[in-house]
C-alpha cells in the first residue's frame, strides 16, 4: 500500500468528557457510584487517501473534527477503530515551539526538537546554521527561549519543522506566523517542499492560501467526510454553506470543540 502517502480507513474517535474537573482518586471513587460521563463522537468513520507529493487541505467548521484528525495522523491519539497508514516520515506542525524548554537556549532547543522530529544528533547539529538563518533569530539564538517573543518562538518552530527532511508535513493553521515578510518566506518554503515531491496535509481557514497550494480539498462535517474534490469545487460550496449557516438560525448552543478537549 506504499503507493499512497496517507491512507485513512474508516477511522472513529470518541472522547470521554469528565464533567468534574480534578483528576484524583477521590473523583474516581465518587464516579464508582455513578459512573457517567458524556461521550463525544468527534470522528465517525472518516476515510480518505493522500498520494505521494499531493497537497490536501482539510476544511470544516470549528468542531468538525479537523484537529482531532491531524492529531491522529501525528500519532498523538490512537483511533478507537479503523486504521491509519502512513508511509514516510511525518513532521507535525501542530503548535510551533510546543516542545521548547524555556530555560534552554534556542540553539539547544533546535537540537532537541530536530531529534524528536527524527534527525540524528549529528544531522541536527549540521542543520543548525541553516535553521537559525531561516528563523532570522541571529545571535538571539543563544539566549534562553523564555526571553523570546511569541513570534520568535513560532518562527524558530517553523524553521525547525521544515528543515528535518520529512516526507509528509502536517500543518494546522500555522502559516500565519510572524510578520508579512516571514509569512511570504514560509509560504515559499512550503511550495519548495512540494516541488521536491513532499506530501502536505493542511488545515486552514484561509481560502486564498488553500486555493493557491492545495491540489485537493476534503470537507469534514460532523465527523464525516462531507465532500471531496478540487479546491475550485469544494471551496465555493463550503464558503456558501458557512455563510448560509451564519445568516440562518442564530448559532445554537456552542458545540464543544474536539481538539481543544485535552487542553481544557
Amino acid at each position: 500500500m506504499s503507493d499512497k502517502a496517507i491512507v485513512v480507513n474508516n477511522v472513529r474517535k470518541t472522547f470521554k468528557l469528565n464533567t468534574s474537573g480534578a483528576a484524583s482518586i477521590k473523583t474516581a471513587l465518587l464516579w464508582w457510584k455513578r459512573r457517567k460521563y458524556q461521550t463525544l463522537d468527534v470522528l465517525r468513520g472518516v476515510s480518505f487517501e493522500v498520494g505521494h507529493g499531493e497537497c490536501v487541505a482539510v476544511v470544516g467548521r470549528n468542531g468538525a473534527g479537523k484537529s482531532t484528525l491531524l492529531g491522529l495522523l501525528a500519532r498523538i491519539y490512537r483511533p478507537d477503530s479503523g486504521t491509519i497508514q502512513i508511509n514516510g516520515r511525518v513532521a507535525p506542525l501542530l503548535e510551533l515551539g510546543a516542545g521548547f524548554h524555556p530555560d534552554l537556549s534556542g540553539a539547544e532547543n533546535i537540537i532537541f526538537n530536530a531529534v524528536i522530529l527524527g534527525l540524528t544528533r549529528a544531522e541536527a547539529i549540521r542543520r543548525t546554521p541553516e535553521i537559525v538563518a531561516f528563523s532570522e533569530l541571529g545571535d538571539q539564538v543563544y539566549a534562553p527561549v523564555r526571553t523570546y517573543s511569541s513570534g520568535m518562538v513560532a518562527r524558530l518552530g517553523f524553521a525547525i519543522a521544515v528543515h528535518v527532511d520529512a516526507d509528509i508535513l502536517i500543518v494546522d493553521e500555522v502559516l500565519s506566523v510572524g510578520d508579512f515578510e516571514f509569512q511570504r518566506k514560509s509560504f515559499g518554503k512550503i511550495e519548495e517542499f512540494r516541488n521536491k515531491g513532499g506530501t502536505i496535509l493542511l488545515v486552514s481557514h484561509h481560502a486564498e492560501a488553500m486555493r493557491k497550494i492545495a491540489d485537493r480539498c476534503v470537507w469534514i462535517q460532523h465527523g464525516e467526510v462531507h465532500m471531496e474534490g478540487t479546491p475550485d469545487e469544494i471551496l465555493p460550496a463550503y464558503l456558501a454553506k458557512s455563510e448560509s449557516d451564519l445568516r440562518g438560525s442564530p448559532p445554537g448552543p456552542v458545540k464543544i470543540e474536539g481538539p481543544d478537549l485535552g487542553s481544557a
Binding site: A74, R75, I76, L94, E95, A98, G99, S263
Partner: peptide, 9 residues
Amino acid sequence: IQLVKKIYF
C-alpha cells in the same frame, strides 16, 4: 504534557 499533546515519541 504540552509536548506529549503535540508531538509523537
